[in-house]
Design a protein around this nucleic acid. Sequence first.
DNA 1: CGTGTAAGGAATTCTGACACG
DNA 2: CGTGTAAGGAATTCTGACACG
Lengths: 101, 101
Amino acid sequence: MADASSYKDKKVIGIGIASELTGLSERQIRYYEERKLIYPDRSKGGTRKYSFADVERLVDIANKMEDGMQTFEIRKEEMKQSDIRSKMLRGQLNAAFKMRK
Amino acid sequence: MADASSYKDKKVIGIGIASELTGLSERQIRYYEERKLIYPDRSKGGTRKYSFADVERLVDIANKMEDGMQTFEIRKEEMKQSDIRSKMLRGQLNAAFKMRK
DNA sequence: CGTGTAAGGAATTCTGACACG
DNA sequence: CGTGTAAGGAATTCTGACACG
């Protein structure tokens, strides 16, 4: 298994196609990246490349935006599991450390 | 099932990425299209869009070319089954019809 | 036959900013 | 906050042709 990644995770889709697939404007897609909700690859020249997984994520984001959720909340929701654990752990260690002072 | 097509058959890959994925030059890829070996979609602007299935097909073509096969033979090989049947059928009907004259 | 390349143009994408709200 | 838009430039892609073989 030299290449474990399936079609779904290959970053091969330009922003124009991503826009067509999701119904979102390119402006919206770039903005969600600015807000740290999506992480496309970049070509050497700097053009964005998305995977099908990214496209699905964008649709998911779009739905949440429609429900009135803000980018901030969507990002937060995403860090719920694994991410937040290490962060909380670090935070608690920090807190504990400070208390000892 | 409004959308039966999987990731594999969606024409979403630009020729630059297709070139990277296959190791073929853009020139080669365009040439194989000229020789009727591959059929990408086109954007409104005219840029070519390939699917992962197309990319695999290109790799397959590349292997056959390496084996010394010519585009003509590769194309012929592809029409072996279903295609050739209807064509042969038509040919035979034509032949039979002519004989009756 | 299959592929590289220079040529000129068109389509695509990028960033930073202004606007509205 | 989230998104549209005009602006200028850069990266990407397109076609037709010449070259070699």
